[in-house]
Structure formats: structure tokens, C-alpha cells
Nucleic acid binder design. Structure first.
Lengths: 359, 359
DNA sequence: CTGAAAGCGCTAACAT
DNA sequence: ATGTTAGCGCTTTCAG
């Protein structure tokens, strides 16, 4: 039906201007909706544009204005429902203000993140939302921040970086939930995280993620408040793919003095841990208790339903996007961002410890 | 530490050229890695670029080359793990070839989709992957296709659109699984889908989604092959949010001649249906059987584990991206795309029908 | 191999 | 209100 199926050059403002018998500048003003244009001219231009099915070249537009109306989002893994939800919050919010989102996955690789940030900057995104893979190697973020380009950190903070950060008060909820586990008689509390680390976790290990280190701090504090020793041997990092998680879980549950409860750092890990527990023929919470970060619909469908630490993930995505948009639009930060609170939701997966350990 | 923390203009090829004492053209060639450049010049330019920490402006580059190295992906809902996984397949594949992805959510709204496509085109993406909300209202896609811009359809076909389509052979698996249900004695088979529709489903209803209509066709065929009448009253569309799905589920299970099995169209719906069944105090498969499309890790953790129709979602994302990249690079389609096959995985959620209906 | 100059499609002064 | 003239930062002729 359309008249121009041949591979012709795109129609430009110049074409429209000619068709409408006005100068290029006037056509551009009418089309771009800026400057002063008489009704007469506007009508003719718009009609001509319609007729020629003119479409603006946003790239050209961006080059002049310096605004791309695009934001970059860099996360570890979109497949992880945690990020899926957060991303939804971001895109929903961005769209409302007319912004698009370029999404980049890093697989939690530091190098990939550095690359991603660079590329997005080269593409002249108006701002960046990053869930940093590392809280220590942050020069790339530091330089973004210093360059003045809008930047919001999601989920985890970066050491010494003053960039606006949207995250939950992790240390608090971690403390609270650990106390709950201790009160239930658990002493052998295992914690499994995807966080990459060169060596096995030890007492002195400095963890390279604000999120994880806060969680561990919360646990330390809970133990020490009760005068108990923290079981460093039960903290397991590098829980990458499903296989490694299952292997870790088996180790934890079969060691001489096994874990009586395992805490999964996110939904993806939880799934593998639960699979492993199932394969081992153990039942929850009789044989082993279970606690996980994030609350997804499926956690209510298992038998028993799972006790979880719910985080306002979608809302955090929304907040991150709003913060970024605010920065982009040059409005100042509204004081300190309200910290988001996580909630411990008691369902059935945490029971009394099977055998009470010492003290 | 960095020397230029003041908000200065970006450094351009011109700056680098000056610093390296060569023409702008030569600097550009060295930087852009094209044309002929002597080793000497290249070195000087690269050194100068490094020194000034020059970064190319990809927008400017795109304007000249007509290539943005960005593809647009338009889906109904990223939060839906089905699309989350597919998106992962797409981004992984795109990244390998140096392409970025702009992701747009449509909430399955036709209008939002039309908009999204337009905007992505305006941003001069090199190609588009779309999971069309409707298989009938497809002018916007038709015109993309006719304009010659690379386009790949994901998951669902669009009527009369010759664009390359990556989808599973749905009619086949639907037939197969319906036969299985019928063989288990079920006659009252309910099917719940998010698909938007103006009126309740009836025998004559023309469904506006290739994916869903194929599923229904498969079911029709299975029933008619056995000489049985298809229960049109058990097909429920417009299953939007969790609440409406739960309401629908309750209706289906409490009607005079209730459904003995419910088939959920995707993982998000499944979650709500299962929640409703749980709330009703019914057990699977004794009181009601259950079958769902897509296989996620959590489907193995329920009691009983769920019988599912597994689809190679990630692989389809990969295939869609590859097909698009091929088109972008001007290579011809490699004949007809191999149809992806779904598999019925028997686990515990489909049992014999509680009460055998007529015939 | 190198450089000067002409665009890409648009917006932004600057006149009128 | 309208038109003219410059650019934005890069690639691409086209001559040397």
C-alpha cells in the first residue's frame, strides 16, 4: 500500500520544509516543537510531514541537544528475578518520563562492568544506574561520578563513592533474622552467596560487596551479642552456577558438624539449594531449616512455605530511576534518600535446631 | 586525581589531531580503525588520545555510518520469567557481536507496542526483535518489514507478515498434552491466558494471538479426534493481574461442573492459579490436576512437582538475536528457520480425573 | 599515505 | 515570526 517501498533515503526536515514551502529552520521548529511558529506554518509543515511520513532522526537531535533520552542500566544478571523486578521498576518509571533504557548484563564480571559503563557513556546515555559488581574496584564509577554525569547505584554501595545509592538497610535485617535463627536454637548457620572471591572465606576475609559484607556484619553482631562464636566455615562464596551451589549445599549438610540452617543470598541460589536439599532426601524444617533473601510468589507454594527476607525490589527500581531522572533534570537530591527496609516474613521453613549445639 | 574535573567540553578527534600534529581526517582514521594510516601516525594519534583520554562519540559515528550497533527488543513483560530468559538469550548473543539492546516493555498493550517500535526506529536501531501483542493488528510491523529494516518476531507470528519468526511448534505440543490429559480421563480441561479480549471466549471467538490460537487449535483437535466436545466455557482470557487470575481459578473450580484440570499459559499465571488452589484447600492432583507452559526451577519444588510444557526459551532468544544479526549484516536467511520443539515433562501434577465425565 | 572540504540531520544563534 | 548561517563530532569523498 505505501508508496515508497523502494529503499529510499529517509525523509528529512529539508524535504518537509521544501514540501511546505518554508525554511528548514521553520520546519524544524514546527516539527521539534520549539521556538516561535505561526499557526499557518505549523499546519502546513505538519501536513507535509504527515504526507511524506517524516520521522525525526533522534540521533541527529541528540547530537545537537546533548540529550539522548536514554539511560543505561548495568546489572549482574537480568535472569535473576531480583534484577528482573528491579529493572521493571526502572523501565516503568523511565518510560513515564519519556526515557528509554539500554540494559547491559555483566554476569557479575568486573571487567564486563567497566566495559559496559564505557560503552554506555560513548553512546551518550543521559545517566547510568549500576548495581556494582565490586564495592572496592570502583574507579570506573568514580570517574563517571566526577565527570558529573548522573549516576545512581542500586543495591550495593561502592566504597568512598558519594554517588546516590538506593539500597535496603541490610545490616539491620540481617541482624534481626540472625537473632531469630539463634533464638530458634541454631548455631550452625550457613550463608551462601554468588559473590566472587579468590579464596575461601575466613575470619579476616574482606568481602568485596557492600551488600554481602553488611549481611555478614549483621550476622557477626548477632552472634557476638549472644556471646557466641561465628561459624566462619559455613560462609560460602563463589556460588556460581546451579551445580556449584548444589555441591556446596551437600558439603554444608554432610560435614561432621553440619549446618542446621542455610541462608540463601538470593532467589536463584535458593532454588538450587532447595533442589539439593530435596535430592538429599532431607525435609524442611525437620532436618534442616531454610531462609532466603527476596520474596517471590513461588516461595509460598513449597511445602512448607518458605521464611524469607522480603525486599521492596520493584520500589527500589522505581526509586533509582526517579533519583536518576532528578539528577538528569538538574534538580538537587532531596536530602538523604530514605533507606528501604526489608522485612523478615515468618512462614514455615525455619524450625527449632535439630540438635542443640554447645551452650 | 584526574586533571580535568571541571565540566569541560568532551575531547574530540580535532583535539586529538591537534595534539598529535596530524589532520583531523588522519586522526579519525587511526581512531576509527579504517582507511590507510601509517604506523607512525597511528602511534602518535593513539598516544595523544590516551593522553587526553579521548572517547569517541558514538552518536556522531552512528549518524555518519547509519549503524547504531543497537537493537531494539519489545516484549510484553520482562518481569515474566519467560521473557526474562529470552531477553537474556538475546542480550548475551547481541553482546558477543558488539551490539547493545534497548529494552521496551509494553504490558501487552497494542498502543504501547506501536509507540515503542516507532521510538526505536527514530533512535535508529539497527534492527528489532518484537514479541507482538497482537497477531492481527500488525501494520506497524508490516511497515517496518517493508521498509527493509531487520525485524524478527519472537514467540508469536503476525498474520500475513513474512518476517522471520522464532517460535515453538505450539499446536503440536498442545495437541500432545491435551491427548495426555484426555487419556487420564479429563474432560473438563480449563485453559487460562493473559491474552486481552473484549468478550468472553466462545466457540466462534477468533483469538488475537498466534500463540494462543495455536494452543487452542491443538486442544480442539485432540478433543475432536476422540469424538469429544470441547468445553469452550473453560477457556478464560484476560487473566491480567494476580487477583483476576485467582478469581478466575475459583470460578473454574467451583462451578457446577467444575474443571478437573487447569492449564496455565505461562509461569506468572501458574503462580496465581496455584495460590488460588492452595487457598481453596484443594490438593493436586487428587482434587484437581495442573499443567503449565514453561519449566522453571521452582516447578520441581512444589508438592507434588509440576507437570510442565518445557520450551527452549533461552535458545529461542539466542536464535532470534542470531537471525536479526544475520539480517543486519545483510546475509540471507538460511532457508526456513528450524521450528523449536516444546516437551511435555511428566511430573506429579496431572493425575486421573477425579470423576469421569460422560463418555 | 595524507589532508581539505563536504556532508549526516538536526538545533541554535543571529539577523531580519 | 521567519530565514540564514553555523555548527554538533564524526566519516567520507576527492585531490594530492
Amino acid at each position: 500500500m505505501s508508496s515508497n517501498n523502494s529503499r529510499r533515503r529517509d525523509v528529512t526536515v529539508a524535504d518537509v520544509a521544501k514540501a511546505a514551502n518554508v525554511s528548514k529552520a521553520q520546519a524544524a521548529r514546527a516539527l521539534g516543537n520549539y521556538g516561535a511558529v505561526s499557526d499557518d506554518v505549523r499546519e502546513r509543515v505538519l501536513a507535509a510531514a504527515e504526507e511524506l511520513s517524516y520521522r525525526p532522526n533522534e540521533l541527529a537531535r541528540s547530537m545537537n541537544t546533548g540529550k539522548s533520552h536514554t539511560i543505561g542500566v548495568v546489572v549482574g544478571d537480568i535472569e535473576n528475578p531480583h534484577f528482573g523486578l528491579a529493572t521493571r521498576g526502572i523501565t516503568d518509571t523511565a518510560k513515564k518520563s519519556g526515557y528509554n533504557v539500554i540494559l547491559v548484563n555483566t554476569d557479575e564480571e568486573q571487567a564486563a562492568e567497566v566495559d559496559a559503563v564505557q560503552i554506555l557513556l560513548d553512546k551518550r546515555v543521559d545517566g547510568l544506574i549500576v548495581a556494582p559488581a565490586s564495592s572496592t574496584e570502583t574507579e570506573h564509577l568514580q570517574s563517571v561520578y566526577e565527570s558529573g554525569r548522573p549516576l545512581v547505584l542500586l543495591d550495593r554501595a561502592a566504597n568512598g563513592l558519594a554517588a546516590e545509592t538506593v539500597a535496603v538497610n541490610t545490616a539491620g535485617i540481617s541482624y534481626e533474622s540472625t537473632v531469630h535463627l539463634l533464638d530458634s536454637g541454631h548455631r550452625r548457620i550457613a550463608f551462601i552467596s554468588t559473590l566472587k572471591s579468590d579464596s575461601p572465606f575466613k575470619a579476616e576475609t574482606q568481602v568485596d560487596s557492600s551488600q554481602i559484607s553488611e549481611r555478614l556484619d549483621g550476622m557477626f553482631r548477632a552472634f557476638s551479642d549472644k556471646g557466641l562464636a561465628f561459624p566462619h566455615d559455613l560462609v560460602r562464596l563463589n556460588a556460581g552456577d546451579a551445580d556449584s551451589i548444589q555441591k556446596i549445599t551437600r558439603e554444608l549438610l554432610r560435614m561432621p558438624d553440619p549446618a542446621t540452617v542455610v541462608v540463601a543470598s538470593d532467589g536463584l541460589i535458593a532454588l538450587s539449594v532447595l533442589g539439593a536439599i530435596q535430592d538429599l532426601g532431607l525435609s524442611i524444617p525437620e532436618d534442616v531449616s531454610f531462609l532466603m533473601y527476596d520474596d517471590f510468589a513461588w516461595t509460598r507454594l513449597t511445602t512448607p512455605p518458605l521464611t524469607v527476607i522480603a525486599q521492596p525490589v520493584y520500589e527500589m527500581g522505581v526509586a533509582a530511576a526517579n533519583a536518576l531522572l532528578r539528577q538528569i533534570q538538574g534538580r538537587k537530591a532531596s536530602g538523604t534518600a530514605p533507606a528501604f527496609e526489608a522485612r523478615l516474613i515468618h512462614r514455615g521453613s525455619v524450625g527449632p535446631a535439630k540438635v542443640l549445639s554447645n551452650s
